[in-house]
């Protein structure tokens, strides 16, 4: 719109308003209320028009922002499926690490008294052995010592065997770090994806009506499902979308599947 034209329109509007105002005063003075009300509405009209226009624009923007939000299927998928899944995965990590700690601590609880008993027996034998070397033992005491040595050797073999088994239990329970690590890395990838999508959303809404998005497919769209299925996923987490996949539940299942393939 041309500047002088705008000024002309403005002047015209003000003249009209002044005219309405004069009429309004006249109507009010002659107590013509209905006519006065009509004039007040007339005076308000340009402002309402502006308000409606502004409101209309806002509504349109909101509508389009919501549409583009809805159109971003990946973000919807992330919030609807993946975030609850991620919570379940992290809960699973908590319970796995708890179990692993208990497994380790249980083994230690059993191992500690065994080592303490072995240690106490060795101390006792050493003291008696020293007395024997100093020729302080009676025949009966010596016989006792000999039986003690025998018992010590027997239980030493058994106890160290048990200790070895317990240490092996502690060793195997450390596998949680790998298994939970894989699950946590998967959640980290999800958080990154959510972040990228949110940044994109902020970019969209700050650009207001500038809805020309770069044609950038989301990562999930760029990978065909068939290929994705064969990529490494990490451990199956119960109560997530993992459980809906066709998975084996034990080593026996794996062995059965492989033998059906001629292994």
């Amino acid at each position: 719109m041309d500047n002088t034209e705008a000024l002309d329109q403005d002047a015209e509007r003000r003249a009209l308003q002044l005219e309405f105002a004069r009429q309004l005063v006249a109507r009010l003075e002659s107590s013509e209320w209905e006519e006065a009300d009509a004039l007040i509405r007339q005076l308000r009209l340009p402002y309402e028009q502006q308000l409606f226009e502004e409101l209309g624009k806002l509504t349109r923007e909101l509508h389009e922002a919501l549409n583009s939000f809805r159109g971003d299927a990946r973000l919807v998928e992330l919030t609807r499926d993946h975030i609850p899944d991620a919570k379940e995965r992290l809960n699973y990590v908590v319970s796995m690490t708890e179990q692993a700690s208990h497994r380790t601590l249980n083994a230690l609880d059993e191992a500690m008294p065994i080592t303490e008993a072995l240690h106490a027996m060795a101390l006792d034998l050493r003291a008696r052995w020293a007395r024997f070397r100093n020729r302080e033992l009676t025949i009966d005491e010596f016989r006792d010592l000999a039986r003690g040595v025998e018992t010590f050797l027997e239980s030493g073999i058994q106890d160290t065997e048990r200790l070895k088994a317990l240490m092996s239990e502690i060793l195997m329970s450390q596998d949680y770090q790998d298994l939970t690590g894989q699950i946590i890395r998967r959640v980290i990838r999800l958080v990154q994806e959510v972040e990228e999508n949110l940044v994109e959303l902020v970019r969209l809404s700050s650009g207001r009506l500038d809805l020309q998005r770069p044609a950038k497919p989301s990562p999930s769209e760029s990978e065909p499902d068939a290929l994705d299925a064969l990529r490494g996923h990490g451990p199956v987490v119960p109560n997530t979308r993992d459980a809906t996949a066709d998975v084996v539940s034990s080593q026996d299942d794996v062995d059965a599947l492989l033998s059906s393939l001629g292994f």
Partner: peptide
């Protein structure tokens, strides 16, 4: 030696 437990993956490996 893996946590991957999908039947398709085991078949793929085989």
């Amino acid at each position: 030696v893996t946590a991957e437990a999908k039947r398709d993956q085991i078949i793929e490996a085989a």
